[in-house]
Simulated assay, not measured.
Amino acid sequence: MPTLKDKTLFITGASRGIGREIALRAARDGANLVIAAKSDAPHPKLPGTIHSVAEEVEAAGGKALAIKLDVRDDGNVAEAMAQAAERFGGIDILVNNASAIFLGTAQQTDIKRFDLIQSINTRGTLLCSKTAIPYLKQAENPHILTLSPPINLGKNWLGGYIPYTVTKYGMTLLALGLAEELRDCGIASNALWPQTTIATAAIEFALDKALLQRSRTPAIMADAAHGILTSDAKALSGECLIDESFLRARGVTDFEHYKNDPACEDLMIDLYIDP
């Protein structure tokens, strides 16, 4: 079975949610995990810090390096990548997971708020990817995985919260563009997005707590990410992948255990996914 043993994964936004779950899934293989996020101290409402996840990674069988990271800070990103490479002898995989959400219309979105989500989502993805590339060029089977949606230009997705949509589609364009730019280097770049909403702090606090019952756990995204990141980088690149579709193509047929509420029969389809 393909494994991430001894691979070094640099994961942004890894202190909770999907980033944390991807880290723990890789840790069970015996991977090296760079837990990079802003949360280095406990939050009164949000569980998890880079240090608590690092402890979980070690307990799961991996090696961990916790780094406080602001993906908007050029110097911070460069220093973090250098520190990770020095600690583990290189970087094999970058997971662009850090993201900010605000579901307001153009009229409702303050420009300073847009600047924030744009700087984290699109600019942060570009900055982290650009900084990681020299290290990835030295790796065997290197991957960049960006957690962003398929570019769906249906009118229903354009009217409601276009400022946020612009930043998430920007992440996807970067993922697709990097795949072509780096194809001759053997570095894969793909985007991954969930079929349904995922039970994370973003759902609970930024959207609607009631959606937690209609969501899947982050484990489905972690399993899909594991499958992508253990694939041949030269064979799988430049794709917008959906967790359920990808896993089904790999032979997975049972998705019941991914439900956050086992009794739920009405899962909520995620943003940008047509029914």
Rank of each mutant, 00 (worst) to 15 (best):
P2D: 13
L4T: 08
K5G: 02
K7Y: 04
T8N: 02
T8G: 00
F10W: 04
F10P: 01
S15I: 10
R28G: 00
R28P: 04
D29G: 00
A31E: 11
N32E: 06
P47F: 07
G48M: 05
I50D: 14
H51Q: 13
A54K: 02
V57D: 07
E58P: 01
G61I: 11
K63A: 07
V71Q: 02
N76Y: 09
A82T: 12
A84Y: 08
A84T: 10
A85C: 07
I91Q: 03
N97I: 10
S99V: 13
S99F: 06
S99W: 09
I101H: 12
G104E: 15
Q108D: 15
D110N: 08
D115K: 03
D115E: 15
L116G: 02
L116H: 13
I120V: 15
T122L: 14
G124F: 05
C128E: 13
C128W: 04
S129F: 02
K130T: 09
A132K: 03
P134I: 07
Q138Y: 04
Q138E: 15
N141P: 00
I144K: 01
P150T: 09
L153D: 07
Y161T: 08
Y164F: 15
Y164D: 09
T165C: 07
M171H: 08
G177Y: 14
L178Q: 11
G186T: 08
S189L: 03
N190I: 03
N190D: 15
Q195H: 12
T196V: 07
T197K: 11
E204F: 02
F205C: 04
D208F: 10
T217A: 01
I220Q: 05
A225W: 02
A225D: 09
G227I: 05
A233N: 06
L236E: 13
L236H: 01
L236S: 03
S237C: 10
C240R: 04
I242L: 09
L247T: 08
N260F: 11
P262N: 05
A263H: 12
D266Q: 13
L267R: 01
M268T: 12
L271T: 06
P275E: 15
P275Q: 15
